[in-house]
Design a protein around this nucleic acid. Structure first.
Lengths: 225, 225
DNA sequence: ATATTGTACCTTGGATACAATAGAAGGATC
DNA sequence: GATCCTTCTATTGTATCCAAGGTACAATAT
């Protein structure tokens, strides 16, 4: 007899719910960079008290999404152009390693994840849903880490992935040309991954990441001026 | 008239103090792997209430030093042999990149840090202070990150450095031969760093890290049996 | 007019009380 | 004697209260 499998939505704690909600708000650009987040502001609006709110903010700080200034308050992170560059460089390092490990450890599983994400991206593109495209983009890159076999590497990526997603949401200029280039690059990466051609893949990945970083840096520079 | 400049030691928050204290206890092997840390246990012994204790534990979880199980309790992290391997592989990746960046960005400053740490190691070795040697060892490796010019890379290292230190303290067999090998390797790394010989340095670094990982893995395997 | 000071208000830091849940112990029943 | 059910305890999750630090603005003295 096959084992019974039931889906059970575990009642997540309030602090976890608040954390997710605020994170969504940040990565979906509902909250502006630098926006203040008083503990009794957002929390009371959701009907929770300051305690779970504080926990949520503490964890969000660990994810780099908010900055807590002692005795002053908590604010949505506000990256400088230099931050964007450093973030991209770090991301490129992590993702390159994840690609190499994934090819060595579980190429089939990783490839399946990549193709699923690509399918979602294609669908989003056809329906013109920019937000869905961005989500699928996030899933695509996360696939490398889900199958790299190193939990620490994956955790490190998690610690910056949300910041990257937030940058995408805040600063992406919805130019169709950009999306075309991006989509083509993803397809090319899948091809190289399937063929086991690590170096060719990494070359595209590097261009891919550094180009988007340049876009974000410019957007921040202009906005800051 | 020049502006008045006075040093004032800012009293750190209770939660920060508790966090440091518990972290010290873990990395100095005062607490065993898997040891339970109820919120009202350690906290009350230090005269603080559960609130700062909870905050401290939350942050320690982000540093990988404790594991919080919902509704069950908080426990000192308890790495498996596989964890040790993954941790070492991740650490090697981070540190290799830090070395490359350090050589490119601020070689003099990094070199000064390395030499200072080496001095401390030598002194600790002469006085036979194993704990001081371990601390200096930690400082040595941290030097690469303090001068790599990438805050995200440095932060990622921080998120695992304490775990590495804890492994050292819990599992290091104080064999003099090991310390001799370690000391010689550090010296060789400084030499290669000063000469700008990245590849030679990285070769030693790889051996250095993977060898200690092998020691820790074996120690955990034996203890677990 | 300007610099300083007093003050009100806002925000976080910490403590305590209460609610909810998981796990263990113990007893009753078959 | 084993098993199931109950109860009890230990621990975390959440709410609320008080204290302390920080900011901004108005009042005041020079």
């Amino acid at each position: 007899m096959p084992p019974i499998q039931l889906d059970l939505t575990v009642p997540k704690s309030l602090s976890a719910a608040v954390e997710e909600r605020i994170r969504d708000a940040i990565v979906n650009a509902e909250l502006a960079f630098g926006q203040a987040l008083p503990e009794d502001g957002v929390g009371l609006a959701m009907g929770v008290s300051r305690t779970p709110m504080r926990e949520a903010l503490t964890r969000l700080q660990a994810q780099g999404l908010v900055v807590i200034v002692p005795k002053k308050g908590t604010f949505v992170f506000d990256p400088s152009p230099d931050d964007v560059d450093q973030l991209a460089a770090f991301r490129l390092m992590l993702e390159s390693e994840a690609v190499r490990l994934g090819l060595a450890v579980a190429p089939e599983a990783a490839l399946a994840g990549l193709r699923a994400a690509q399918g979602a991206m294609e669908q989003a593109r056809r329906s013109g849903d920019g937000r869905a495209y961005a989500r699928a983009d996030t899933v695509f890159h996360a696939s490398f880490f889900h199958h790299c076999g190193n939990a620490y590497l994956a955790k490190a990526y998690e610690s910056i992935a949300w910041q990257v997603a937030a940058l995408r949401a805040h600063l992406s200029v919805p130019r169709l040309h950009e999306q075309d280039t991006s989509f083509a690059e993803h397809a090319a990466m899948i091809g190289h991954f399937a063929a086991g051609e690590a170096e060719a893949l990494l070359a595209i990945l590097g261009r891919h990441i550094l180009r988007s970083a340049a876009v974000y840096r410019e957007a921040i520079r202009v906005r800051g001026a």
